[in-house]
Design a protein around this nucleic acid. Structure first.
Length: 941
DNA sequence: TCCCTGGAACCATAT
DNA sequence: TAATATGGTTCCAGG
């Protein structure tokens, strides 16, 4: 029990927590009692995913990441890598079925049901990464992209699994309704029909078996839209139009009325209380087909990720997405209408003021040939094939802004980009408030997102010395542990009015509304974002979209994602991206869920006893602070309630006594998590915390029960993204199956194999990244992390500074960049498992200086040596169990830890695991065991 | 009058 | 299966 307080040892530097990741996610409500171990199942509830997300570690992007990124994207664990690139084994695995993929038994029960049921938000992994294309992020070469020859061809050849209409009545997924669909919604949704052609892999046979507890539909597993999911794919209105469409033109175009004055906007109920639906087509009844969406619980998430579709599909998708053309698909019909004949990936909205309307093709900004090809591609290749949208009365204006973000060559919104590269750094100078109630279409605007200290968020591009103004793009991104991508249920909403000083302009990219704000040299390339509100789309509408795999319920956390595209002398465009700290957009959540913004300590010796002050919101007199240690798979290995100094508890602060760690003999920092609990289901996101060895590191660890994951990176770490790196790395490092995947990179094991990350050595430069590398998914021996295949690109950038995004709490200290930067780390991050976005760009510390300290969490975990980590699936990957227990593996050369804290001293510890230990863990899942082993392995390292 | 906000009712879904 | 808890969405009212 925590009760015992030991004198805190100060001898150990409190540096940033070791890289552990884990934390995460959804843990079940912690029992008050301390120190007990629980099974994952017990816990839970967590809304986890969401929470998870929040925390992405902000890491500054690492320039070098590139290569890995690609891999990630393409092949991330759940993600299918492009066919070509995938290693044989990998592909095979994939094909086989998701199930086999990453999810280890743990996630899916024999019967196919998810191992754990929890109310958590299930988020499916998404393909964002499809872009196998080279351009990962920045340095996109326009030329390369543009050439129509290429695209078209690819397009033509690709048979998208699901380009079919978004809504196929027959395909309505029951699942979709699960989350929040109301009758009405259904009706409306159905009628509205989001039918855009969606190129989603959904249909693919590979869909993951993972099913959310409630839904078993295979379909669900779909990765979110291809490209960025067509989030908004707007519902197509059925002939019989439903009274209201969730996504109205207004909303998309900005023309929306504040409140639905007309009855049409409101839901109507029939006698039975259901909304009357006019549409003849849709029957409210779920189609036999399972819904495309697979719910991914925290638990399942990993597994889900696995479920990726075939590489071929992916490749196809990538091609498409890259082009952006597909993106339109997701756009709500209305939105699409607005786009006149084109299928531009980017639709610009006409400025109210009479900006130049769109008659003008977006060409201006492109080179003639580019534009031409662009158009060619779009119209010819994609649009024509898939979209047949009536012209919309609205005209689209072409972007005024200098930059040609509209360029087709720009990276898709779901691509992970670094926040800095070379001399440039895109940074969020002022973070948004952690809470911002989003408004529904049926409501009036709720104003622009504000900063905690008043005012509004601000973003600045550093290092840009040119005189040319640029355009800052802003869209609403996810805040879960997975890779950053456009949020399916939220859209940025342009705020105008007297109080808004910043001019902005709306565009639609990949079905995602993007606010474009000028970055002017005269303002030091700084923009105050006082023109961005957040629009909530009805869950039912979005979930019904074909291909949409995310669920809206409890998926109420978002991040503001900023991007800037900087033209380079060589003709290329450097794209940088930074995401804000998570923002809770639900009224209820904002009012009820405890939120930890800061924590006075990030680490403490295992003896505990130290006082830690938590500041945040919604703390109650009876709030509890639960410390949790998670296994890589997310299971709780240890859980204990910390003592609170009730007298000092205030709504905005809590004083807790750090409980002693369960294992006083750890030889290396162990990362754990804690959260504030106000009751069942009312828990804060996980915050990272690191226990430091009480003594000098011992050489040998006890084989015993102690599960000492030095790096507990639970997959879960959802919330804590910060650590991800380490986690991944860890996980990655270990082959899922010794037997199967011994060789990093190629192993039969789908998961890991795929991923190999490029050598760390890879230059930091993004440009350098070659897509090929990714595609291959080869891991460099050295670092091979595996990669997370996931595209998440975030990787790249993010990695640099891991900060627990979500966790604002992190100690202010930022990890020394240097430490983080190490190639390894970068790579690792890049590798981060798909699902988890940990490392991704998210809030890179840099991005959010103000916000807070971010902890350099991952440091330790990322051991360079571990190179081969993979992580495709993040946590889930069944790591190869290198069962160390059975036979102690050869100890890798002592690795040097990156931990900030630790001086890079090699740690020669060999951990030997007893098989017995396993018993203690969840034996039911072999994979889990493996994971454990992995963690232990990490320890060794 | 419109935009923002805060609060809360209503209801479907989850436990 | 019923009851209750949760959470999403819609409405109302005030500044």
């Amino acid at each position: 029990m925590p009760s015992t307080s030991f004198p805190a040892l100060s001898k150990f530097p409190l540096g940033p927590p070791a890289a552990v990741c884990g934390s995460g996610e959804s843990l079940g409500p912690a029992p008050p009692s301390g120190g007990s171990m629980k099974s994952a199942e017990e816990e839970h509830y967590s809304y986890a995913p969401s929470s998870i997300s929040s925390v992405l570690p902000p890491g500054p992007a690492h320039p070098s990441l590139p290569a890995p990124c690609h891999d990630l994207q393409t092949s991330g664990p759940g993600m299918p890598a492009p066919a070509a690139s995938q290693p044989p084994g990998y592909g095979g695995a994939v094909d086989t079925g998701p199930s086999s993929y990453f999810l280890s038994s743990g996630h899916i029960r024999p019967n196919g049901a998810p191992a754990l049921e929890s109310p958590r938000i299930e988020i499916t992994s998404y393909l964002g990464m499809h872009h196998s294309n080279s351009q990962f992020f920045h340095d996109v070469e326009v030329e390369d992209v543009l050439p129509s020859s290429k695209r078209p061809s690819s397009t033509a050849t690709l048979n998208l699994p699901n380009l079919e209409a978004y809504r196929d009545p027959s395909c309505l997924s029951p699942a979709s309704s699960l989350s929040s669909r109301s009758c009405n919604s259904e009706a409306s949704s159905y009628e509205s029909n989001f039918s855009y052609p969606y190129a989603s892999p959904q249909t693919s046979p590979w869909q993951s078996p993972c099913v959310s507890p409630k839904t078993t539909d295979p379909e669900e597993a779909f990765p979110r839209g291809l490209g960025a999911c067509g989030l908004l794919s707007s519902p197509r209105h059925s002939p019989s139009t439903s009274p209201r469409t969730s996504i109205t033109e207004e909303s998309w175009l900005g023309a929306r009325t504040s409140r639905p004055s007309s009855p049409c906007n409101k839901r109507k109920y029939g006698l039975n209380g259901r909304q009357l639906s006019c549409s003849p087509h849709h029957s409210p009844t779920p189609s036999p087909h399972s819904s495309p969406r697979v719910s991914i619980t925290d638990d399942t998430w990993l597994g889900n990720s696995t479920q990726y579709t075939s590489s071929a599909i992916v490749a196809a998708i990538n091609a498409l997405t890259t082009d952006n053309s597909l993106e339109l698909d997701g756009v709500p019909v209305k939105a699409r209408k607005t786009a006149p004949d084109h299928c531009p990936s980017v639709a610009l909205k006409v400025e109210p003021a009479g900006e130049d309307l769109g008659t003008t093709p977006p060409t201006a900004e492109f080179l003639p040939e580019e534009f031409t090809s662009f158009q060619h591609i779009r119209k010819g290749a994609f649009c024509d094939q898939y979209l047949s949208v009536p012209q919309h009365p609205y005209q689209w204006a072409r972007p005024r802004s200098p930059t040609s973000f509209a360029s087709p060559s720009l990276p898709a919104l779901d691509w992970q980009l670094p926040s800095r590269s070379g001399p440039y750094e895109l940074r969020i100078e002022v973070q948004p408030k952690p809470h911002h109630r989003a408004h529904y279409e049926t409501e009036g605007s709720r104003g622009a997102v504000k900063a905690s200290a008043g005012g509004h968020p601000s973003v600045q591009l550093h290092g840009y010395l040119e005189n040319e103004p640029l355009t800052l793009q802003l869209f609403i991104g996810t805040a879960d542990d997975r890779l950053l991508r456009p949020h399916a249920f939220y859209q940025v909403h342009r705020i105008t009015g007297k109080t808004v000083s910043t001019t902005s302009h709306e565009a639609i990219l990949s079905n995602t509304k993007v606010l474009e704000i000028p970055l002017l040299p005269e303002n030091n390339m700084r923009a105050i974002v006082d023109c961005a509100g957040i629009l909530k789309l009805r869950n039912s509408d979005i979930e019904l979209r074909k291909g949409e795999t995310d669920i809206g319920r409890k998926n109420t956390r978002v991040r503001l994602v900023f991007r800037v595209h900087i033209p380079q002398p060589n003709g290329r465009t450097l794209s940088l991206q930074v995401a804000s700290n998570p923002i809770e957009c639900s009224q209820r959540s904002a009012q009820e869920l405890p939120l930890v913004e800061k924590q006075s300590a990030a680490s403490c010796p295992v003896l505990g006893g130290k006082k830690m002050v938590l500041s945040g919101h919604n703390f109650l007199q009876d709030s509890k602070v639960i410390f949790v240690e998670k296994a890589p798979d997310g299971h709780h290995i240890w859980e204990t309630e910390a003592k609170l100094d009730r007298d000092l508890c205030k709504p905005n602060s809590l004083v807790v006594e750090i409980p002693p760690f369960r294992n006083q003999r750890i030889t290396s920092p162990v990362q754990v998590s804690f959260y504030v609990c106000n009751g069942k289901r009312k828990r804060s996101q996980y915050q990272h915390f690191t226990y430091l060895p009480a003594n000098a590191p011992t050489i040998k660890t006890e084989p015993t029960d102690d599960y000492e994951p030095a790096l507990p990176c639970g997959p879960a770490s959802q919330g804590l993204s910060p650590l991800p790196k380490s986690c991944y790395s860890q996980q990655l490092a270990m082959p899922p199956d010794p037997g199967s995947c011994l060789v990093p990179g190629f192993p039969p094991c789908p998961q890991r194999s795929t991923v190999v990350s490029p050598p760390p050595s890879a230059g930091p430069k993004m440009h350098d990244l070659s897509s090929t590398t990714y595609s291959k998914g080869m891991a460099s021996p050295g670092h091979g992390h595996l990669g997370l295949q996931r595209p998440a690109g975030g990787l790249l950038a993010a990695q640099e500074t891991p900060t627990p995004a979500g966790v604002h709490a992190g100690p202010p200290q930022q990890p020394p960049p240097a430490l983080l930067r190490p190639q390894v780390s970068a790579q690792l991050s890049s590798h981060c498992p798909l699902g988890r976005r940990p490392a991704l760009c998210p809030d890179s510390p840099s991005s959010s200086p103000p916000s807070g300290p971010q902890e350099p969490t991952c440091l330790q975990s990322c051991s360079p040596t571990r190179p081969s980590e993979m992580g495709p699936q993040q946590h889930r990957l069944p790591k190869a169990p290198r069962s160390e227990s059975a036979a102690p593996r050869p100890v890798p050369p002592p690795e040097v830890r990156e931990d900030s804290n630790h001086s890079l001293a090699p740690i020669p510890v060999t951990v030997k695991r007893e098989p017995q230990e396993l018993d203690q863990l969840y034996l039911d899942d072999v994979n889990e065991i493996i994971r454990n082993d992995l963690s232990s392995t990490n320890i060794r390292s």
